[in-house]
Design a protein around this nucleic acid. Structure first.
Lengths: 339, 339
DNA sequence: AACGCAAATGACAACGCTGTCAATTGGTAT
DNA sequence: ATACCAATTGACAGCGTTGTCATTTGCGTT
C-alpha cells in the first residue's frame, strides 16, 4: 500500500540516496542510472512523503498565500492558479486569509511564517502594497513574491508580478474613443489601491493623446463596490454636461452604473456606453453583458507561484518578472456614439 | 529562533515524552507536571513541528476540502469555516478543487488521499451527493463528513451536516403568504442538486398547509444561474395568470428575475415581490436588495470540520450531526400584496 | 515501616527522507 | 597496463516528534 524510497531503491538496485537524487533532479546521476530509477519509481507509483522530506531537508516544500480581499472571485482565481503550480512542482499551499487592518497583523504573519516553516509567500493587494509588512517578512528566511499593479516594480523589497493596469485602462479608453465618444466619465475605485491610481492614469493618458479635454467633474472618486457605481453614475448623469460613456474602475462599479442608468431610463448601450474592468464572472451576469478588460488572474497567480518556487530553489527563471496587460473584451454594453 | 520539544523539556525539567503528552492533551499527567510544562511551553512560545509530528505519529494532522462549485462566494465561505476550525485544532487544510464530471475523478481522489495521507475529508455538493465517490473513499482509511441538503442523512455512508432547505423554503414561502400573496411563482435550480428538490418541496408544503392551490404553470424548471432567472421570470410574467410573487431558488436566479421584471417595467416590490435564497453577497448588490434566506455557510463548514476532526481522533461530539435551517432575511424586494 | 499497585514518567527506537562525507567507479592520459 | 582524477554512488547520522514498553513514583494498606 505504502511505497517508500526503500522499495524503489531495492527494485532499482541502487541506494536510497540515489533515488533521492533522481527525485530531486540533482546533477551527477548517470543517465542510465536515472532511467533505471525512474522506471522503478513509475512502476511502483512512488510518491515521496512530504512530512519526511521537509523534516529531513533544510528546504521546505510549503508556500503560503496571504490575502485579504472581499472579492471571492478574485481570491478563488488566484488560489487556483497558485494551487495548480504547487501541484505541478510538488509543493503544499497554506492558505492564510487575514485582516490587513488588524493592529497585530505583522506579528501574526511573522508567527505564521516561523511556525509553518514556509519557504515562500505569494502576496496580493492590499498586502503587496504595504511596505512595512513586506519588510518585516523579508527579514525572515522566506522568499516573497508580490502581485502588484503597475508597469514596473515599486521597490526592491521583493520580485513582483505586475499587472499593467495603466496601459490596459488606456486601451479600454481608446476603445471608447474609437467608438466616437469624447465625453467619457470615470468612476474610480478606492485610492488606497494602486490599481485605482493606475487605471485613472491610463484613462487620462488616452484622453490626452487624443487631444480630448480632461474634465474634473467627469472623474468621480469611488470605491470598488456596486453601491459606489450606482452613486457615481447618478452623479455623472445628473449634470447637464452628461458623458456619453462611462469607464468604471471595475465590474462591480460598472454593474452599479448600469443599474443607475436603467433606473433613469437610459438605454445601454444605445444612449450610454459603460465599460468595466476585471472580467469577473460578475460581468456576464449583468444585462447587457459588460464590455470589460480581462484580467487573467489565474495565469498571473500561476506565474507568480512558479517564480516563487524557483526562487526557493535558488533557481532563476529567464523571464524573472513579468507584466500582464489585461485585454479588452468587447461585449454588449458599449456601442458607437451617434449624435 | 527555533524552539524544539527538547528545549521545553529541559526548561521544565521533564522528559520530552511528557511534554509531548501535555501537547496532545493525553491523560495520566499529574496536574502539577502539566502546569509546569505548560508554563515552559508558554515561556518559549513553543509550537510543535508539524512535519515531525505527522512523520512520527500514526495519526495525520491533515484534512482535505474537496469541491467543485462555480459559486466562488460559497466556496470561500466554506473554506474559511473549515480553515478556522483547523487553525483552532492545529490541523492543516489541503484544498482540492476538481471536476466532478471527470471520468477519472474516483481514481484521482483516491490517489490524492493516499499521497497526502489525509485523516479526513470535507465534501460539499455535488460530491457529497455522489454515492460512488463516497463509497470509494470510505474504503480507504479516511473519515468523511458531507454537507448535504436535507432534513436527515440520505444514507449511512458517512456522517453528514444537513442544511434543512425544505423547512427554510417553507418559511420563506410562508413569509410571502403572510404578506397576502396567493399567486406565488417558483423558479427552480438544476434537478441534479438535492437542494432544488428540497426547496421545491418546502414551497409546496407551505402552499398546501395554507390551502393554496399548487399550479404547475407557476413552477419553472431552471438552473442555478442569472440567465435562468431572467428566462424563468419572463415565462412567469408573460402568461395571463401572472404571479404576484416569485420564489427564486437562489440569489442569482432572483437577481435575474429582478432584472427581467425591471425590463418589463414592473416595479419591485410594489407590483411584484421577489425572494431569493442563500444570502450571498450577491443579494446585496441588486437593487432593491433581496429578501432571502440566510445560509450560514461558514458556520456550517466550521461545524463540519469540528465533527470531522473529532472523528479522526476517535472522539465523539455530543451533537453528532446537526441540521441548519437557513433563516429568513427581510430586505427590500418583498412587500404586502395590495389588490 | 514495609508492601503492593496503579499512575506517572522516561528511555529509546522508529517514522521516511536529505545532508555530509567517504568510497567506488569509469574514463583519460601516460 | 597503470595511475590519476572527476564523476558517480553509497553509508550513515540526524531532522523533531510519537509509540512502545520499561521504570519509577506516590499513595493507600497492612
Amino acid at each position: 500500500m505504502k511505497v517508500t524510497i526503500n522499495d524503489v531503491a531495492k527494485l532499482a538496485a541502487v541506494s536510497i540516496k540515489t533515488v533521492s537524487r533522481v527525485m530531486n533532479n540533482e546533477a551527477s546521476v548517470r543517465e542510465a542510472t536515472r532511467d533505471k530509477v525512474q522506471a522503478a519509481i513509475d512502476e511502483l507509483h512512488y510518491q515521496p512523503n512530504l512530512a519526511a522530506r521537509s523534516l529531513a531537508g533544510t528546504k521546505s516544500y510549503n508556500i503560503a498565500f496571504i490575502y485579504d480581499n472581499p472579492n471571492a472571485y478574485y481570491v478563488i482565481d488566484m488560489q487556483n492558479g497558485i494551487l495548480s503550480e504547487c501541484k505541478k512542482q510538488g509543493y503544499e499551499l497554506l492558505i492564510h486569509p487575514c485582516n490587513s487592518k488588524s493592529e497585530t497583523i505583522c506579528e501574526e504573519l511573522k508567527k505564521m511564517v516561523q511556525h509553518s516553516r514556509v519557504a515562500g509567500i505569494v502576496m496580493t493587494p492590499p498586502f503587496s502594497e504595504m511596505p512595512e509588512i513586506v519588510k518585516t517578512l523579508s527579514a525572515l528566511d522566506v522568499k516573497i513574491i508580490r502581485i502588484v499593479s503597475g508597469k514596473e516594480s515599486p521597490d526592491d523589497l521583493s520580485p513582483c508580478v505586475m499587472i499593467n493596469d495603466k496601459d490596459a485602462a488606456k486601451n479600454v479608453t481608446q476603445h471608447l474613443i474609437d467608438l466616437g465618444h469624447k465625453n467619457i466619465g470615470f468612476i474610480n475605485g478606492g485610492m488606497e489601491h494602486m490599481s485605482s491610481h493606475e487605471r485613472l492614469g491610463g484613462y487620462k493618458e488616452a484622453l490626452q493623446s487624443n487631444d480630448i479635454e480632461i474634465k474634473d467633474n467627469h472623474i468621480i472618486a469611488g470605491q470598488y463596490s456596486f453601491e459606489s457605481g450606482v452613486q457615481g453614475a447618478n452623479e455623472l448623469l445628473a449634470g447637464k454636461d452628461r458623458p456619453t460613456a462611462i469607464f468604471a474602475c471595475n465590474d462591480e462599479i460598472a454593474a452599479g452604473a448600469l443599474f443607475a442608468a436603467r433606473l433613469m431610463n437610459i438605454n445601454i448601450p444605445d444612449q450610454l456606453s459603460i465599460i468595466g474592468f476585471e472580467d469577473s464572472p460578475f460581468s456576464r451576469q449583468t444585462w447587457p453583458k459588460l464590455t470589460t478588460a480581462h484580467q487573467p488572474n489565474k495565469t498571473i497567480a500561476q506565474h507568480a507561484a512558479a517564480l516563487l518556487i524557483a526562487a526557493t530553489r535558488h533557481q532563476k527563471l529567464s523571464d524573472e518578472t513579468q507584466s500582464f496587460i489585461p485585454e479588452l473584451v468587447v461585449r454588449d454594453s458599449t456601442s458607437r456614439f451617434v449624435q
